[in-house]
Design a protein around this nucleic acid. Structure first.
Lengths: 209, 209, 209, 209
DNA sequence: TATGAATGAGCTTTCATTCAT
DNA sequence: CATGAATGAAAGCTCATTCAT
């Protein structure tokens, strides 16, 4: 295993502000450089702590990654679960709720979403196994949302599942672009909202608008 | 830039057999370990050449990657272009043609497909920029094929675009499984064909079978 | 110097139970891993105290080592001095007395003997100089005992000095074996006694038995 | 295991001069500082090679140690075996032959003897297991020599075995003193010879002188 | 052209020691 | 007195790249 229970305990006994500084440092560097190229040097600089401390809490670079991954997957899925409506049948309003919930998370942990995607750069089997159970946490919540959608509310020329996927890919695309220059939850959210509004206007049957 | 014209010339003056040994070594190691974790040591061992020779032809690890990427993208897209029918309107027969063409390519370069996907593990902007123009080569050919499909030939409950994407994901899934244990173009092809046959029987309108 | 008088005073003002817990922790880890590889982390864990406290009392790892070394050498030599007979002329009965005295010491400080031998793993000149005057304490007591032995009590085929050395090496050999699995003063003592009884029966002239 | 066959092969393909430079660098640093405190940095500086090369040939610090240990034990025992007389019955002449043989070895590898003793500073079980079979090589040769000694040639007050051990301890003592300041095979040999001559004159029966 | 020994900067990791609480 | 989080220098080791042959 890459990390263990005792690490968690020690970590969560720190001041919340420092916890977040370390988590954000970890997420940022892994998000930007991918797992392998991310250096512990850069992480501790970003977090504003010493090299030793990173290893005091996480034992290894892999341990830090796994810890942050579990934390991020849990945090983001809980954030979504808590804030989305569980009865919303309108695709665009549901998606908007999702993006609003993400927005709150990204205000606190700007690199969280991108960091979660960095798992694709990981080739170390140890790590992949360690985070396996958390990889579906966020997708599962989104799945739940989509199951409650009434696609009958869409216009005839709209294909629900396709629209959903499209939204997903667009989201990802915007994220990559946004991240390319600078991390900004506000800009990201604004882009998504603009896109959803545009789509909603075009694909929702008039009576449901 | 990661590599230049003179490299190409020198490389293609080697005996064909050695060219392919080097290309396969490069593809294999990058495909298995991702860009960063792939070591030049492993590559030259897999290719059966010396370390010096790799750098003689490609100047750097990044150069080897870019060269192999361009080669692979060009080779696979040409292979597809050449062998697929440009008038096939039946989704399943078209996909079958695609897979047959891939099969021929994978007989020669078993790791080519997986190698092309390894671009997702690359974080180095230099490399991403260098291969940018080749990333769409294969997807574009597939796009062309799909544009000629007559989705009217599918049963009512079949959703063409979804089916297409499903096929893509299934293809990728089978590939990952196949690669997990051993590289085998035959096994891979057999799996895909079985899947397509099954789907065709279920989703094509009787009059088009 | 590695440690000074004020350390002693402070240390001996602690509750006796805690003193021994710290001493045993120090002895155990140095005995098992040798000087260099012994980590302060392991020592404080074994002693059940905090890292800070170790340095509060001993200032440095080297200081802890030297303090424990002086303590052990003094303690064991006094223990021997106190319990052995100063008139015993019989080799085997004398050695038995020595082992009985050691037994009492090892009940309290199981790793003391092995710890004293760990000086062989020390390469730091500072430490070697600091403990120089204590290295002969225990050997000197044994020397004293041996000087009073009447080797005439041994059978003709017995060689006194050789027997003595043999006993020393056997003692050390048994100790290493005992320590290999678990620390146990009782088992250790039983082995030694059995060995001495066997030897006494074979090498003592009948009239002295 | 700490090292393997392929390492040996590669190493012995180097120029002899460089092999010896590396071996002497390894022996020197381990001999002086003991296993743990010896740094690879110091070793490569002493050997006049780069850090990478050390790991190219030996894979790890432990590997370098084990390799040099096997080499030293084999080399010294062969050197002794080859040069000592196998029929010499006189203790002092036999010991003198041994020291002359050692002298030749130490001219080439000045730290070899001290290096072999550094095994006592090793606490890593992996290493101890790896060199286990070589630890007795040199002692066994000396054992063989001693078995042919005719102790009847000694004066009545001389105790053969004790003399032998004494010689061994004196040898070791002189070595430690010699090494303390500077490594010098000549000075070492001169000391030993002087000691042996003195002892021979005192303890050999006149008719055997 | 072809080799692989050689390099050294830079990586991850360790650990004795300090210090705010 | 007691804690353990925090430090950072230094360790062991990796690996893309160079170069003499």
């Amino acid at each position: 295993m890459c990390y263990n229970q005792s690490m968690n305990e020690r970590f969560f006994e720190m001041k919340k502000e420092k916890q977040d500084r370390m988590l954000n440092g970890i997420m940022k560097i892994f998000a930007i450089h991918g797992y392998q190229k991310a250096s512990t040097e850069d992480i501790v600089k970003a977090a504003g702590v010493s090299k030793g401390l990173l290893f005091h809490y996480f034992e290894s670079k892999a341990g830090a990654y796994c810890f942050a991954y579990e934390y991020s997957a849990r945090f983001l899925s809980m954030q979504l679960e808590k804030n989305i409506s569980h009865t919303e049948a309108d695709l665009f309003r549901a998606m908007r709720k999702v993006e609003d919930a993400k927005y709150v998370a990204l205000k606190k942990y700007p690199y969280m979403q991108k960091f979660l995607l960095s798992i694709e750069t990981v080739t170390d089997m140890e790590i992949l196994k360690a985070v396996e159970e958390y990889r579906d946490l966020v997708p599962n919540v989104l799945q739940d949302v989509l199951q409650r959608i009434d696609y009958g509310r869409l216009t005839d020329d709209a294909n629900g599942p396709v629209l959903t996927r499209t939204i997903e890919y667009i989201t990802r695309g915007i994220m990559d672009c946004t991240l390319a220059d600078r991390m900004d939850a506000d800009g990201f959210h604004a882009e998504i909202v603009a896109f959803l509004d545009m789509m909603a206007a075009k694909f929702t049957r008039p009576e449901y608008l």
